Simulated assay, not measured.
Amino acid sequence: MNFIAYPDREFMMLDVAGKIAGQLSEQLNMYGRASLSVPGGTTPGPIFDILSGVNLDWANVAVMLNDERCVGEDSPRSNTRLLKQRLLVNKAAAAQLIPLYAEASEPELMLKHLAEGIAPHLPLTVLLLGMGNDMHTASLFPGADLLAEALAANAPILMALRAEAAGEPRITLTAPVLQEAKNIHILITGPEKRAAIEAAAGLPALEAPVRVVLDNATVHWAE
């Protein structure tokens, strides 16, 4: 992996946002359309704020989450809700949101429909990921019920996974989709996550799911 350590978080957020904007702009100039996949949670929020004000042809950018909790947008735990509040505003309001959640009695019932919306935008132009202290990324959690299937080379675009650490069932992009992204960035902060990602480099993906993208990722870290 390519590891970049920053002197502070503010500088890191500015630099990562600039790199993402540049990669999207290059793709738009070459092909007329681009795709961006981002994590939920509060850590990438400053990057979303910066990107939302960047001059890009946002109308031709498809934006999707890495994963989503199986909750509606009225829930404070909804990643889609955060995305609409922090990224898909200002200039980026023109971007196309590709959903990872649809209301259903069981998440598996909507996977085919949701995947059909994602497929035309693959491979992803830019993939921004986070990572937990347990070395999960997206909703690929160690110990998840279908983790081996989601890590497999023939995994479908989307899967529903359940894990004790995840709380609700999650819908997640699978390992092949993550691995095939043209530009992969992992954003982490603090000493525990630095130690975790360094440990992950020497572990199998079933123990450290983030391992599936490390070889081709740029890891951005600040204390």
Rank of each mutant, 00 (worst) to 15 (best):
A196F: 03
L97E: 15
L203E: 02
I157G: 13
L124R: 05
A208Q: 06
R194I: 01
S139R: 08
L128Q: 05
E103S: 14
L140E: 09
G202K: 04
V212Q: 11
A199D: 13
G167H: 07
Y101F: 15
G132T: 11
L140W: 08
A163F: 11
V212E: 12
A195Y: 00
L146H: 15
L158G: 14
N90E: 12
G130N: 09
A148H: 10
E164Q: 14
L178D: 01
K182Y: 00
H121N: 15
L151G: 10
E106G: 00
K193P: 03
A160T: 13
I197Y: 07
A92Q: 11
P123K: 04
L178V: 04
G130C: 08
K84M: 13
D145V: 10
L146N: 15
A181P: 01
G202M: 03
Q96N: 14
L114Q: 11
E103K: 14
A119Y: 04
G190C: 09
K182T: 00
A102N: 02
L114K: 03
R211W: 01
I98G: 12
V89H: 00
A200W: 02
L146R: 15
P176H: 03
A153K: 13
E207P: 00
K91C: 02
L109W: 02
E103V: 13
L203C: 02
I184R: 14
K112V: 09
Y101N: 09
P176K: 03
K193T: 05
